[in-house]
């Protein structure tokens, strides 16, 4: 199956994408993740101001058949959450790269280096489907 993997993002092994803009970034889940979860029914997000270290769980995404932790790809402080997802969780399925979940202020930009680029993530996704 061919998943949408935009070139301008970086990716975590736990299937979150991160879009960096200066010392801030937005985080969401990938097309692969939404496809495997099936119909998303709820997204639980943290409070603005909460801080998380790289890899920590910042929320939960629920479908009718599964619930998965949302893990932060790099450490930072939450400066905004996408409140629209509360009423329209289906946006995560419809447009996973527009349905951002949190905006963070980065702690340490060098943590980005360990993330995958689009090519590596495409291979990583396809390998898991085989």
């Amino acid at each position: 199956m061919a998943y949408n993997v935009p070139d301008d993002l970086r990716y975590a092994e736990s299937d979150e994408w991160i879009k960096v803009e200066g010392d801030e970034a937005t985080v969401g889940i990938t097309d692969y993740a939404q496809d495997h979860l099936s119909d998303v029914v709820y997204v639980e997000l943290p409070d603005v101001g909460a801080t998380f270290a790289k890899g920590e769980s910042f929320g939960v995404v629920e479908s009718v058949k599964a619930a998965a932790d949302l893990n932060i790809p790099v450490g930072g402080e939450v400066i905004a959450i996408n409140e629209a997802l509360e009423d329209e969780p289906e946006k995560v399925n419809e447009a996973p790269y527009e349905a951002w979940m949190i905006r963070i202020k980065l702690n340490d930009a060098s943590e980005l280096d360990a993330l995958m680029d689009a090519e590596a993530y495409t291979t990583y996704s396809n390998d898991r489907d085989d």
């Binding site: 629920e62 479908s63 009718v64 058949k65 599964a66 619930a67």
Partner: peptide, 10 residues
């Protein structure tokens, strides 16, 4: 409904 909160999935 909301079965994903429950032990058999979570």
């Amino acid at each position: 409904t909301l079965a994903t909160r429950e032990q058999h999935i979570r």
